[in-house]
Design a protein around this nucleic acid. Sequence first.
DNA 1: CTGTTAGCGCATTCAC
DNA 2: GTGAATGCGCTAACAG
Lengths: 356, 356
Amino acid sequence: MVKKIRIKDIAKMAGVSAGTVDRVLHNRGNVSDEARKAVEKVIEEVDYKPNMHVSSISLKRRYKIAVTTPQFSSGAYWESIHNGIRHALEEYENIKVEYHVFTYNQYDIYNCREIFKKISQFEMDALIIGPTFKEETINLCETLNYRKIPYVFVDSTIEECSPLAYFSADHYIVGRLIASLITSIIPNGSNIGLLQAVRTGDSSANTTILRKRGFNDFLKENNCTNPILNIPFSVSETKDNEKHLSHFFKNHHNVPGIVVMNSRGSIVSDYLFNNKIDNVRMVCMDLTTPNAAAIKKGQINFLIGQGPEYQGFYAMKTLLEYLIFKKPVKVVNHMQLDILTRETVDYYKRFSNTLY
Amino acid sequence: MVKKIRIKDIAKMAGVSAGTVDRVLHNRGNVSDEARKAVEKVIEEVDYKPNMHVSSISLKRRYKIAVTTPQFSSGAYWESIHNGIRHALEEYENIKVEYHVFTYNQYDIYNCREIFKKISQFEMDALIIGPTFKEETINLCETLNYRKIPYVFVDSTIEECSPLAYFSADHYIVGRLIASLITSIIPNGSNIGLLQAVRTGDSSANTTILRKRGFNDFLKENNCTNPILNIPFSVSETKDNEKHLSHFFKNHHNVPGIVVMNSRGSIVSDYLFNNKIDNVRMVCMDLTTPNAAAIKKGQINFLIGQGPEYQGFYAMKTLLEYLIFKKPVKVVNHMQLDILTRETVDYYKRFSNTLY
DNA sequence: CTGTTAGCGCATTCAC
DNA sequence: GTGAATGCGCTAACAG
């Protein structure tokens, strides 16, 4: 048991007072070069780690953190991310942080531009971004870089930006995983239906591209000859989907497996259920409320979770610890991928109690 | 934002001093019935939640917590549980707790008795138990009940005992999950090899019984006709297993699926690999180091994780919060079940960095 | 039995 | 530039 080193100890070792040590630790200036060097040397030597729990109670500063993500409804994927963010705030209950949420319509590029413009001018210490539109996000980030405001990504990242960190699934691996799961539960070489989101305005989202690449690579590498049948699908115009689906299934009767690379799997599984189309195995994404219901009824076989709560949680936590304690951050943070089945879905009530 | 309620506030509202409130909060006695009731009433009304971070720095008391589990080697299942326990201790770094580890030989009932006897007489505030031998554990718990020492279980529980809480997988569900997974990846009605641990001395472990029941129930409910072939296997006498396995596979050539309900799956997968037995799908338990290697090489298809780190982590955390803050505890705590594949296993490095 | 008070480790303000 | 002093919310020892 090594004795914990306190600021006072460092002060004594460096031959200065506690106040000076604190000034060095927080870059507050008003310290002679000589004193600063002495203190830094000791800190280095003893590998000083401040006690965060204590810091946070005496901290007087207020922090202002903004969050921007697509709009979402209750039980949806993005809601989980926000839950995680709030959960991190609860962990640091004594730190005074006001946090502002800016949601944009992910199907309306003009709305996104408008919101991002507001954010560009918003006064804040840091920003959490759930990106959708690539160009718009890049523009926003450029402003942030210029204003020296740190930002982190959740859900996915964008190559051209330079976030402090990002928290997301490894979407390429997600694609491989989907391929691996579906091919393991349907006959060799049989048809696979693939939900093909038709996005208006924007080109296909970055996450989808990566997932598809992973999906195709897996099939190729494993010599899978399964024909891939695209099922057209609209994320924004949900009323059209009934039509798309019925059209597809009128023309295709032998589709033992269907994969959905976005979180709307339950729309398909509901369609299958309502139209009494049996014997279709499904692999879908994300533990949304409707997907949870579908998997419990056995309509979805595997659901892949990206740990959205953890993405939000760690994004906020990392940001706070960076801002307050200058804690070094890891840039790339790939979340663990959860594979859920009918049997295990009930045990995934994250953050429901005091669990992290 | 509601203003945080402090002890001082409660004191004022109850018309007493902070000292009295503290005495009530910690059951320290020396409080008149009248004062106690007044304080308790206010605490109830305002739903007072102490600030743990602050408590922990001013706390002077030392706590002594013991842990007993089977002996384990590096990278084994039980090691993860201990890692989780230590991790919880790190989170409460400023609380002075000395913790003592007692490991016993899970294949030697006499050794277990000996160790448990020592523990019965050990001076401590609480105990974490990883149970194996049923009767011995029941005896130990009776002593603990008598001595009014709270204890929690990890890995599994024992009906006859009355722990403060337990943290384990729902083993019945584990069995169902195993059945569900293996039947989904092998042809209908084909043979399933089942590793049958032969334990010396003790009757089959409780967890195994539950898992088997779940396994069989699933098959029955889903009208699976797969013949189940038992593969004899010794957990204690590992040298014999080579013999057992080769004997089994000499007599059975058509076994497309094998399930292992304990953490020794890699022994089988290694045997298959070394003897060039292909086309066998495997579902195994627990992310041990050898199992991780086997799944990465594609020799195991699904690995089920019971979150041992979390079991240990929450066991210790719950215990500390109960002891120190009298925080109410939930008795039944079923961990989430992780399904790992070759693709996702790399993202399950829990507690490796500062992630929880 | 009860109220008062001195710390716990750290951030911050205020004289020097 | 610097050290000393104060306060954060809570525990525990100490007078009464």
